[in-house]
Every structure is written in structure tokens, then in C-alpha cells.
């Protein structure tokens, strides 16, 4: 079992060296790597007690790394947004701008479609009025979708 563990860790060490540039390596692999690099795997063969001890330590370490990894991913995003001056203001402004853009885009598209249909049909203000109203509705529908979608979409 230990032999397998050692082989796996060596393999993963090689794998990490090849693919580390894209950090796909899991926390577990990194933990095993630490062990091989520090040369502690050799001492492991001596007894059962140490085997269990090693196992526990491995488990603890990989658990901690996994936890830290998910935490730091979350934190990194938060700090990136808030570390700059006025982080909250910037975020709120981004949200406001987004909603504004959605509304304007809807109205704009409705207007252009109505205008063009008027040109083609010759029923001058009819389609412009109808599609302007539809465009406003679409703009508000965009906002509703943007703000009540998933939590991720609500963030911005």
C-alpha cells in the first residue's frame, strides 16, 4: 500500500512539474509532493505506527489545503474587487451601469426595428410606436432577468 502511495506521489510529482504552469494540481498532490521533496517517504517503511501517523498527517494536510484553496479562491475575488479605493462604490456603479445599458439597449433595438419597418411599410408612425413600447418592455425584461437570475448574475 505504501509502495503504491509512494509511486503515486512520484508520478504526481512528475505530473505537477509538467503541468504546474496551469495549476490544475490538486491540494493533495501538492501535499504528497512536499513529502517526496523533503525525503520523508524513505523513513516511512519502518513501522505501522508511522504508517498511520503519515496517513493522518497526509489527510490533515490535504484537507487543510483543499479548504484553504476554496477559501482563497473566494477571498481573492472579494479582495480584488474591494482592495481598491471605493470598492463598494465601484461595484455599485458597475451594477448601475449594467442595468442602464440593458434598458437603453432594449429601447434602442425596439426603436431601430420599428423605424426600419416604417421605412419598408410606409405606415409611418405605427411600427415605431409599437416597437418602441415593445423595446421598453424588452429593456425592463432584460433588467428583471439580470437581477433575478442566479446569484452569480446578481453580483453584477
Amino acid at each position: 500500500m505504501l509502495r503504491a502511495l509512494e509511486r503515486a506521489s512520484l508520478a504526481s510529482a512528475r505530473l505537477i512539474k509538467i503541468r504546474f504552469c496551469f495549476l490544475e494540481a490538486k491540494g493533495v498532490n501538492a501535499a504528497l509532493l512536499v513529502f517526496t521533496e523533503s525525503g520523508q517517504m524513505k523513513e516511512v517503511d519502518h513501522g505501522n505506527g508511522e504508517d498511520r501517523d503519515l496517513h493522518e498527517r497526509l489527510e490533515r494536510l490535504s484537507g487543510a489545503i483543499e479548504k484553504k484553496r476554496s477559501e482563497s479562491a473566494e477571498n481573492a475575488r472579494k479582495t480584488a474587487e474591494q482592495s481598491a479605493v471605493g470598492g463598494e462604490t465601484g461595484k455599485a456603479m458597475a451594477l448601475g451601469f449594467r442595468m442602464l445599458a440593458e434598458l437603453i439597449a432594449g429601447v434602442l433595438v425596439g426603436t431601430v426595428i420599428g423605424w426600419q419597418l416604417d421605412e419598408w411599410s410606409g405606415l409611418s408612425p405605427l411600427f415605431l410606436i409599437v416597437f418602441l413600447v415593445l423595446g421598453v418592455a424588452a429593456g425592463f425584461w432584460n433588467i428583471v432577468k439580470a437581477s433575478s437570475g442566479s446569484v452569480r448574475r446578481k453580483n453584477f
Partner: peptide, 25 residues
């Protein structure tokens, strides 16, 4: 039919809102 029309306009407005937001900011 009305809602499909609104959905179509909403879809067409996506590239516009996407580009207007970045450019305006």
C-alpha cells in the same frame, strides 16, 4: 406572440448592451 417578440428584442439587445456598457464606462 407578444412575449416571443419581446424575447427576440431582448436577445437582439444583448450585443448592444454588452458593447455599450464597456464603451460607455
Amino acid at each position: 406572440p407578444l412575449l416571443v417578440l419581446i424575447e427576440v428584442i431582448s436577445f437582439v439587445s444583448r450585443p448592444i448592451s454588452l458593447s455599450v456598457r464597456l464603451f460607455a464606462n
